[in-house]
Design a protein around this nucleic acid. Sequence first.
DNA 1: TATTGGATCGCC
DNA 2: GCGATCCAATAG
Length: 191
Amino acid sequence: MNKKLDRNFYNRPTLLVAKELLGKYLVVQRDGCFLSGKIVETEAYVGFDDPASHAYRGKTFRNRVMFGHPGYAYVYLTYGMHHCLNLVTERGGYPAAVLIRALEPADGIELMKKRRGCQSLKDLTNGPAKLCQALGIDRNLNGADLSSNIIYVEDRGEAVTKIASSSRVGIKEGKEKNWRFFLPDSKFVSR
DNA sequence: TATTGGATCGCC
DNA sequence: GCGATCCAATAG
């Protein structure tokens, strides 16, 4: 019943992918551990003219994965200590990705609690850096293929009824774009 | 080569 | 509200 999202899913307009990722499950399995969570919050970063995007000033060593083919993970370090996970969308050569901002923990909750040093279910994965820490996502997964068995997103057949949008979080420019999408009824949305 | 500030978090 | 702590992008 669970269906892994393939490259065709990611090779579409980023805003559409960002919305359709809501309600799907992010899975990370390594070292005999199976971790997953339902995606409840995303943000889109699109093209050459989006001042909030890492790609705005052109291709660099850090952001090169964003310029590559769809269906790969772009993981970067921010504030010198936190990792953030993006899923690359749209055609090769066009920089676009969806930032995964929050999950509802599903599988492997005990390991997530241990890694986060936190017992509260609500605070385990309700932020982009928190979910990376909980699932053990770091720059070793930068460029990872989302059609692999290490990291991927799957559809578990759950219907999404309500989606809300707002300005993106933590950026200075590009605030006029409502490119943050979330499930308004979820307790696991950030902030 | 030096400086600055960031798609954050957790504690004060 | 603020410090932690690395790296990329700027300025010089």
